[in-house]
Design a protein around this nucleic acid. Structure first.
Length: 263
DNA sequence: AACACGACCTGGTAGC
DNA sequence: TGCTACCAGGTCGTGT
């Protein structure tokens, strides 16, 4: 479920719901973490930040709880801890009786504690935020020119540009008309420009959709809200040219693209 | 360096 | 109905 847009929607909601709230107690259900549970007790949530697909709950102590939703995670507030869903993998009881829940059916999500130094390192090592001012054409072209990786894998590498996953990487390449297997350093300068613009355009559109879809807790399906051109549409006509969408496998994951548009 | 691939988990769905 | 096989929005460690 969650790529950058969905994670951003979760963060915006959390800022409204838990910014300033105090954590009374916490528990990781799958694998207990006495250190984390102790470190958060009594601390206030000073800020909620997103770093790529990571959610950072920055505490008033300077440490932070990092949550990664991976495939099926969701993070939201419920009015009462006793109402927690079956797939609750972690909970944070908040002052006032509410609780922050990590709900994650596949249990691949990650929760850990970052000391201030860890937090700094995570920020320093992160890929470029595509919706920030740092994501300039120059910076992107420099990264692209240095990589022979297939375009799709290049876009999904979180250490280069942070936040694109399997769906939006495919959509970006379709919008920019670049073949997913083309080595990134052999994409023309004009198309590099188009890819960068497509990243910003797709992500902004998807953030809007995700925020609309995510007014309440529960799952959100990007496909219900953001019009997907190629993802999951093998055998269907390309909305741009009518050629049938193909599916290939790259690095063990499905890639969808239009053989007519994407060269 | 740059891949592929299995592992980590659970649940939904298509096909028999 | 019930079984099997395969698929899934992410990332890591290991092997080639």
């Amino acid at each position: 479920m969650p790529e950058l847009p969905e994670v951003e929607a979760v963060c915006r909601k959390l800022r409204r719901d838990v910014a300033g709230a105090r954590i009374v107690s916490a528990r990781l259900l799958r694998k207990r973490s006495p250190a984390l549970e102790r470190a958060v007790r009594g601390r206030a949530i000073a800020a909620v930040e997103r770093l790529g697909k990571n959610i950072l709950l920055v505490l008033d102590s300077g440490s932070a709880v990092r949550v990664h939703l991976r495939m099926t995670g969701n993070l939201y507030v419920i009015p009462d801890l006793r109402l927690r869903p079956e797939a609750t993998r972690a909970w944070f009881a908040l002052d006032g009786g509410r609780a922050l829940i990590l709900d994650d059916s596949r249990a691949l999500g990650v929760v850990d504690l970052l000391a201030p130094d860890d937090l700094r390192r995570l920020r320093d090592d992160a890929g470029i935020e595509p919706l920030s001012e740092a994501f300039t054409l120059e910076a992107f072209a420099a990264l692209a020119g240095r990589s022979r990786a297939p375009a799709k894998l290049f876009l999904m590498d979180q250490t280069r540009v942070a936040g694109l996953g399997n769906i939006y990487a495919a959509e970006v390449l379709h919008r920019a008309r670049v073949h997913p297997r083309r080595p990134m350093n052999r994409v023309s300068r004009r198309k590099i420009d188009a890819v960068r613009a497509a990243i910003v355009g797709v992500l902004n559109d998807a953030v809007q959709s995700a925020c609309n879809a995510y007014s309440g807790p529960g799952r959100f399906e990007a496909s219900e809200t953001f019009p997907l051109g190629v993802y999951g549409r093998e055998g269907e006509p390309c909305p741009a040219c009518g050629r049938l969408v193909k599916r290939i496998v790259q690095a063990g994951r499905s890639t969808y693209y239009c053989p007519g548009c994407q060269r």
